[in-house]
């Protein structure tokens, strides 16, 4: 798969996680592609941590006073509300957001997540990520399975953490893994790969679900 195809494939699979009416916060990049793949009967309410519950479609004419959390022009959907930062994170931390989808530098078998700093190299800051992964009921990591062949899914994260034991599910172009008490359980696989190939691309020992299914993306 080409890189753009990989992202689409992952976003398409992530879209199946949502139920009609779910409140969802999407990280920057790949996660923002997810709404395009939602089935017609599933409408989610998008929370944008910079100040919206109910973010709308990309506007044809930009209003300089309405942006998404990445600073890009945005719109508000019918039924939406504008909020300040304290309210926004009150909603996030208070468990009023059903799911957040975000990328990762590393994620490990305990569900620990690292996605905000590579010491000495890249320090963008955590922004709202630490609050989002602590507060959202479901934390879905959506990313390419490896970084140029290097493991990103590990037995134990080596980079500074964003939060401990927060990730509930990992969705990559190779498979879908649930974070369980016993470790990472591979529950769906891309039929283009074998279980052995997925394991080889993973730095933690996978538990293979007895009900392992093919991803239908």
């Amino acid at each position: 798969m080409e890189k753009s195809e990989i992202k689409k494939y992952i976003a398409k699979r992530v879209a199946k996680e949502f139920h009609d009416g779910d409140v969802v916060n999407l990280g920057i990049g790949l996660p923002t592609m997810v709404p395009a793949f939602l089935p017609d009967d599933v409408k989610v309410i998008l929370e944008a941590e910079n100040g919206m519950v109910g973010a709308g479609a990309k506007p044809e004419v930009a209003d300089p006073c309405i942006s998404d959390a990445g600073g890009s022009p945005a719109s508000i959907a019918t039924g939406g509300a504008f909020i300040d930062s304290a309210t926004s994170f009150g909603l996030i931390r208070g468990g009023h957001v059903d799911a957040t989808v975000l990328g990762a530098l590393q994620v490990d078998e305990k569900g620990n997540l690292a996605n905000w700093i590579i010491p000495g190299k890249m320090v963008p800051g955590m922004g709202g990520a630490m609050d989002l992964v602590v507060g959202a009921s479901n934390v879905i990591v959506a990313m390419e399975h490896t970084q140029k062949g290097n493991h990103k899914i590990l037995k134990e994260c080596t980079l500074p953490l964003t939060a401990k034991t927060c990730v509930t599910k990992i969705i990559t172009e190779m498979g879908v893994m649930n974070v369980t008490d016993k470790g990472l359980e591979l529950v769906e696989i891309n039929p283009e790969f074998t279980v052995e190939q997925v394991q080889e691309a993973t730095g933690a020992t996978l538990i293979i679900s007895p009900d392992l299914k093919n991803i239908e993306a």
Binding site: M52, D63, D84, A86
Partner: peptide
């Protein structure tokens, strides 16, 4: 977005952010 002579403030869009606290 708007401020009145009493200092009361209203907002449009996502401009509230950290201004309010």
């Amino acid at each position: 977005t708007q401020c009145d002579q009493y200092g009361n403030v209203r907002f449009h869009g996502t401009t509230r952010n950290f201004n309010v606290v």
